[in-house]
């Protein structure tokens, strides 16, 4: 029950249990699990970037997945963004924030990659000028 209650605490929220009855050990466990997961993911990221075992073109995608996983770990274990009733508004705001972040990042990258591809190489432009 104690663990349950702790998980349903919104960010910046105090626990529902009075301070005297607060069981600090369950909170300690949550942060420690979060730290361990974050360390494992970080070490894996550094390993993936430096190893030659993995197919090289797949490395950036692997790094991206590891980073997103670690951000999830931080959100759940450190910021306590969970499915609890006090957290509904926070989750909705987070979903909107993630939408905007993906639009800004994805949109910029797609547009700029497209422009790069369609732009005439510098040398060809020089040749055109000379021919004229």
């Amino acid at each position: 029950m104690t663990t349950e209650t702790h998980w349903h605490v919104a960010p910046g929220d105090l626990p529902a249990i009075p301070a005297s009855e607060q069981n600090a050990s369950s909170g300690f466990l949550v942060y420690t699990i979060g730290l361990l997961l974050a360390v494992i993911l970080t070490v894996t990221s550094f390993w993936v970037a430096n190893t030659s075992v993995i197919w090289a073109p797949g490395v950036p995608a692997g790094l991206a997945v590891l980073a997103i996983a670690q951000m999830g770990v931080h959100l759940v274990f450190f910021l306590h963004i969970t499915t609890g009733p006090d957290s509904t508004n926070n989750v909705l705001a987070l979903a909107f924030g993630v939408l905007i972040v993906f639009l800004v990042l994805g949109g910029s990258l797609v547009i700029m990659a497209n422009l790069n591809e369609n732009m005439m190489p510098h040398t060809e432009m020089m040749n055109l000028q000379i021919e004229r």
Partner: peptide
Amino acid sequence: RIIAGFGFWIFLL
């Protein structure tokens, strides 16, 4: 305390 946390969370986002 919940409202303050929510407001700050909006700022962080």
